[in-house]
Every structure is written in structure tokens, then in C-alpha cells.
Amino acid sequence: MIRMLLRVLGHEYAQPMRRTVALMTTTAVLEGLSYALLVPVLQALFGSTPGDAWPWLITFGAAVAVYAALRYRSDLSGSESRCCAACTTVSAIIWPDCPSAGTPQAVSGRCPSWPATASCRRWA
């Protein structure tokens, strides 16, 4: 299904979608690693010397901070890619004879008017 979507988007607009998928995959892996860091944190906290938990807490905090920044960037990229995918798909269905049908340019004013969003205009 992703391959078909990338084919519909075309080479130029498939790259942002690939970037989004890569960012989301990296974010998911980092989220899993941060969950895994909870094991040593909790072991140290509930062990005989809770003061030994500080290095693990700092590592866990850093992992969560990196995850939050990456998640924010991933969500922004995903939002833009979803808009691009929706615009290109809808324009290809509504205006199949338009020379730029199936591209965000069709949505941003080069074909019959379609209420393009700011994100789609950015892709055009």
C-alpha cells in the first residue's frame, strides 16, 4: 500500500513521505528504548541503594527529551505528508485530464480551484 501511494505521489513528492516513514520508525525505536531504560531505573530506585539510580535517571531523561524532539518533528513531517498525499490523490481523481493532476500543483491553483491548505502550498 505504501508503494502504491509513493507511485501515485511521484518521485518528487514521494521523498517527503519516505522521510516521514523513516522519522516515525526512528521515533518508535527510541520510544521502545526509553521504555527499556525503565527497568534499570526502577531496579536502582527500589534496590538497596537508591542513590545509584541517578546515572540511570539522567540517561532516561535524556532519552525522553530526544524522543520528544524527534516525535515533534515526526508529527510535523507526518502532517505535511498527509496533506500532500490527500491533495495529490484527490486532484488525480477529480481532474484526471489536468496536466498536473495527481500533484500538489493541481491543488494550489494550476487547475480548477481547490481549497489548498498552507501545507500543500508549501509543497507546490
Rank of each mutant, 00 (worst) to 15 (best):
G51M: 11
A53F: 00
Y72G: 01
S74V: 03
T88G: 13
S108R: 03
S77K: 03
L76A: 04
V90A: 14
A116V: 07
D52S: 11
G32P: 01
Y35W: 13
R110F: 00
Q105A: 11
I58Q: 06
S34T: 06
V107D: 09
I93G: 07
R18D: 03
D52L: 14
L37E: 15
G78Q: 02
L76R: 14
G78L: 10
L45P: 03
L30A: 12
Y67Q: 03
T26L: 06
L70V: 10
V29I: 10
G32V: 01
R82S: 09
P99L: 13
A68E: 01
Y72V: 11
V66Q: 06
S77Y: 03
V90G: 00
D52E: 11
G78I: 07
T25I: 02
W56N: 06
L38C: 15
D52N: 06
R71C: 00
T20N: 04
P55G: 13
A62H: 01
P40V: 01
S74T: 01
T25E: 12
S113C: 02
A68P: 10
W56K: 04
W54A: 15
C98H: 05
R73D: 06
S108G: 01
V39A: 14
A101T: 02
I93T: 05
A118G: 05
T103E: 12
A86Q: 07
A85L: 00
T26W: 03
V90W: 07
V39R: 12
T59C: 07
G32F: 05
L33S: 12
P115L: 08
T20Y: 05
S48H: 10
M24P: 05
A92S: 05
A28K: 04
V29D: 13
V107L: 06
P99V: 11
L70P: 05
A92L: 00
I94H: 00
T103K: 11
R71F: 08
D52T: 15
D75G: 01
D75P: 01
I93P: 03
L45S: 04
C83V: 15
V39P: 03
R19E: 13
